[in-house]
């Protein structure tokens, strides 16, 4: 290859460096959250839990080009599975996360099997229908899910047998941060694997992908399962950290908010999902405290501004700024 004049390693090394830098940044931001807002750790843990949901949505929307307004179905499946398991004596936190991931993955498979039958708007409507159906199921199966009261009173075992999930939420936060970093790193590998490249191809031109001899369905259904596992872990983390699971975890509203956060942060980059979640939820947290009735108006206005002036989302705009600065800096 070098003989033909292609630079051997530059292009391969750079994304790896970028990944390591993003992971370091997440760890740094997470640690500063821990030191700067010690009284808000339970809120920050919820941010991480929702960030996993938005990351999972990015896999489907940002990498495969399948719009979904029902992603909370997968998040809720993980939350309820972990909650029910915990109330039935499975209290080991890592195991609960795994149970959440498995429940999310299975729900993802089913959701994919239904959604992939359609394209475009009908597909979007199916996603809404699925989350509404699950919401109704969780409401009706009160013996299992607690109905409209939800599940409460879960008492997860201490982390590594040492750190209690206490009122201050330190253990839960650090546990969640660790989970997020590991998941993010694995997803980075995923989106740069051959599988991830095929997904990007499917997003842009399915006909071209089929002309390469690659069938779309097996690829997309696997992505739904992976996405479900990630969302399910987010749900399980929420259940462990807050020790309640409610109907809001499997709602259309949460699904729609997740999509808003993703668009806000920028599609198809993973980092955008994280930035979008943190910005959206921080705004919600601060403004809802000041004016609980009109905070959505402000969020709406910010969104309109972003879609009009920064269509690639916050992370895309940051990238462009960085590129401009670099160009300025050059002699």
């Amino acid at each position: 290859m070098t003989a033909l004049g292609l630079k051997p390693d530059g292009a391969q090394a750079r994304p790896l460096l970028r990944d390591l830098a993003s992971i370091a940044l997440i760890a740094l931001a997470g640690a500063s959250g821990y030191w700067l807002f010690p009284d808000n750790l339970s809120f920050l843990t919820r941010v991480i839990s929702v960030a996993l949901l938005v990351l999972s949505l990015d896999l489907v929307v940002g990498y495969c080009g399948i719009a979904s307004l029902g992603q909370a179905a997968l998040y809720g499946a993980g939350a309820y599975a972990a909650g029910i398991a915990c109330l039935n004596g499975v209290t080991e936190p890592f195991l609960l996360i795994l149970i959440g991931a498995a429940a999310g993955a299975v729900t993802g498979l089913m959701m994919g099997a239904v959604m992939l039958r359609a394209h475009g708007l009908p597909q979007l409507v199916l996603s809404i229908a699925i989350v509404q159906l699950l919401h109704e199921a969780a409401n009706k199966l009160a013996w299992l899910t607690g109905g409209s009261d939800g599940l409460s009173g879960m008492l997860p075992a201490p982390l590594f047998g040492l750190f209690e999930f206490d009122l201050w939420g330190r253990a839960a936060y650090l546990f969640g941060l660790g989970l997020l970093i590991v998941t993010f790193a694995l997803l980075r590998l995923l989106v740069r694997s051959p599988f991830g490249m095929v997904c990007r191809g499917l997003k842009e031109d399915p006909l071209r992908v089929s002309a390469l001899g690659i069938s779309a369905f097996p690829v997309l259904i696997r992505m739904f399962a992976i996405s479900g596992a990630v969302a399910g872990m987010g749900g399980a983390l929420g259940a462990i950290a807050t020790q309640v699971v409610g109907l809001d975890s499997v709602s259309f509203e949460l699904s729609a908010n997740a999509l808003v956060m993703l668009v806000l942060g920028g599609l198809g980059q993973l980092t955008g999902a994280l930035i979008g979640t943190v910005v959206f939820m921080s705004i919600e947290h601060v403004i809802a405290a000041i004016n609980p009735f009109h905070w959505m108006t402000l969020v709406g206005a910010i969104l309109v501004a972003i879609v009009l002036f920064a269509p690639r989302g916050l992370s895309g705009t940051l990238d462009e700024l960085a590129r401009l600065l670099r160009r300025e800096g050059r002699p």
Binding site: R192, S193, P194, F195, G196, V198, I214, P218, V219, R222
Partner: peptide
């Protein structure tokens, strides 16, 4: 091998 997950592109 185009749809492998545990592989480098």
């Amino acid at each position: 091998r185009a749809t492998r997950i545990l592989a480098r592109f």
